[in-house]
Design a protein around this nucleic acid. Structure first.
Lengths: 335, 335
DNA sequence: TTTGATTATGAAATCGTTTCCACAAATACA
DNA sequence: TGTATTTGTGGAAACGATTTCATAATCAAA
């Protein structure tokens, strides 16, 4: 491995000059510059990242946190982010948090340890009182989820309240009366809009319910629903209920698929006996046995905007704190 | 950010001693050791990776290359790898190559630049003559695909020849006679077993064909098939054929899904008019409109074995060069 | 005791860069 | 023409760790 001084020696110049060429800073004569350049590619020289980092310069790496990469919503989100970052010459470090706060801290510590220039959080596992401390070490951007605190970090997200409000209205228009609700959260203790991601969804749902004078049974709330397996369990639970809902907002397409699968097994007709509304619009949702009606998240847009925001931040620009995109209802056959 | 000398100062000792404690090398008295330890967590000290790397020690990071993260086969593979690596204290850098040789080199250069301790290649975009050069910079493990050259790097893969041979036999048993074949490769110019991943698949297919005295029309070969979109195109092409196949091996579940989708649109009955055999067994394949019969890849096993192999390599153990797992035919309804 | 090995500790060199500082040469301004 | 600025260049310090080397203290064997 050639070092900077090998290059300097070959070019007959000082390491300082070589370094100036590498970082193309001014005050280098054209003659010497080309001398250095030819020496560099003669030796196949590439600066050692660790050494540059040690001096406190850029790492040209970004961390992106997601709960799990096998969740298509997040793999597409990451994909969109990475694409943009790539164009700008950054490499991307994907960190799976598995929804564990400690793992999120691992990612944030990369900032502290100068291993990355910034981190893009696609989910939030720690309170702002913890995350906020890391802003002094590097740039942070929030995507998808958000924090209600008065924070200074750019946030790119979709309007979950509006989307769920409209979606619930849509269900009423379709003639449904008894709407069940599934979510990934462990519990829904908050119902005020503007608290966070899940609260917004639930608030939108509730507001529509109230406007339609519709009741909501506690039996119709299903928490900790993440996987298709969870979906299957939910369907079984629904069918064992005295007072059954006639439609369910599944929280995610994955859960919706599980519900659909188990409905097939249990011979429950969708959408006649039970409507199923997904969330996300995964690529496969259209080719399910019963094509899934779903609330589409603007994944690509969010990813791209998040990357853009981060890049602007890196360029020292100040940017608007919040960008709110719109959810879209994709009507197919399951509702 | 506290440095090692801050710790040394607080503990009233030299940096050497602190370093010894950090790397728990011998010859440190219990008393001083605990002195250093309390100083360390009093300051919240964490060694700066860049500085350690500069001295040539471990990075505790592994790179994993995959064509694309949104491909579920690879996201599950990565997931399995990362899980194991995580347990061993390594973090994982996921590099998407988009099937471009240059991007694969980017990943291999991480080795050269001492940014990672090893790289796990889940696909192969460069010849061994290129990849082999990097073994001197760090450890390399091949998963999923393989190279026929006499290489020294551990390879974990599935027996594609055997799987496709059995799958084709299975189609004949089912009464199919005219079998089409789709693949992601740009062309199939090799048909000899043992050349590579795709050749093995095709050879297994061909051998079964020959044994059954069955012909193969060039019109029934579809190349560059990656996405569901490609699958849709393929179905249209098939339907425009004079001499139509009665079943197709789709190359991947994604392509199979596209075929299924378009078959729905074109009112082609599956499996009556056209059988569709997928490859991979993605989680959703079971809940498609027509549940997909598919050749299941041992993704989890491969990922775990690959990670294990890498860890053994890092520990200085020599390991058997090749581990070959078995493909499994999952029978559902599309064939 | 004396000698030799082992253990515990610190000083200083080292890794490969960037950047501050010094200084000379060239250019601009009066 | 003299002074002030700009441009070009190299030397050396700095970044934060690890590691080699030297030395002092302790222990074991004679």
């Amino acid at each position: 491995m050639a070092t900077i001084s090998d290059v300097a020696k070959l070019a007959g110049l000082s390491v300082s000059t070589v370094s100036r060429v590498i970082n193309n800073s001014p005050h280098v004569s054209v003659k010497k510059r080309s001398l250095v350049e030819s020496a560099m590619d003669q030796l196949g020289y590439v600066p050692l990242p660790a050494a540059r980092q040690l001096r406190g310069s850029k790492t040209n790496t970004m961390a992106v946190t997601i709960p799990r990469i096998v969740n298509p919503f997040f793999s597409y989100l990451v994909d969109a982010i990475e694409q943009r970052l790539d164009e700008a010459g950054y490499s991307t470090l994907i960190v799976q948090t598995f929804s564990r706060p400690e793992e999120e801290l691992t990612a944030l510590n990369l900032l502290k340890n100068q291993q990355v220039d910034g981190v893009i959080l696609c989910s939030i596992e720690n309170p702002w009182s913890v995350i906020g401390n890391y802003t002094k070490y590097g740039k942070i951007v929030l995507v998808n989820e958000y924090l209600k605190d008065d924070i200074k970090v750019p946030t790119i997200r979709a309007n979950q309240y509006d989307g769920f409000y409209r979606a619930t209205n849509f269900l009423f228009e379709k003639g449904y009366k008894k709407i069940a609700y599934a979510t990934g959260r462990k519990s829904i203790t908050f119902v005020k809009r503007g608290e966070n991601f899940d609260a917004d969804r639930f608030a939108g749902f509730q507001d529509s319910l109230n406007e339609h004078g519709s009741g909501f049974s506690h039996d119709w709330l299903f928490t900790s629903a993440h996987t298709a397996e969870d979906g299957k369990t939910i369907l079984k639970q629904i069918m064992s209920l005295q007072d059954k809902p006639d439609v369910i907002i599944a929280g995610s397409d994955e859960v919706a698929m599980g519900i659909l699968q188990e409905a097939e097994v249990e011979k429950v007709k969708v959408p006649e006996e039970l409507g199923v509304l997904g969330v996300d619009d995964q690529p496969v949702s259209a080719s399910l046995r019963v094509p899934l009606t779903t609330i589409k998240q603007p994944v690509n847009e969010m990813g791209q905007e998040a990357a853009k925001a981060m890049l602007k931040l890196m360029a020292g620009e100040t940017i608007s704190k919040e960008e709110i995109l719109k959810l879209k209802i994709i009507e197919r056959a399951s509702v």
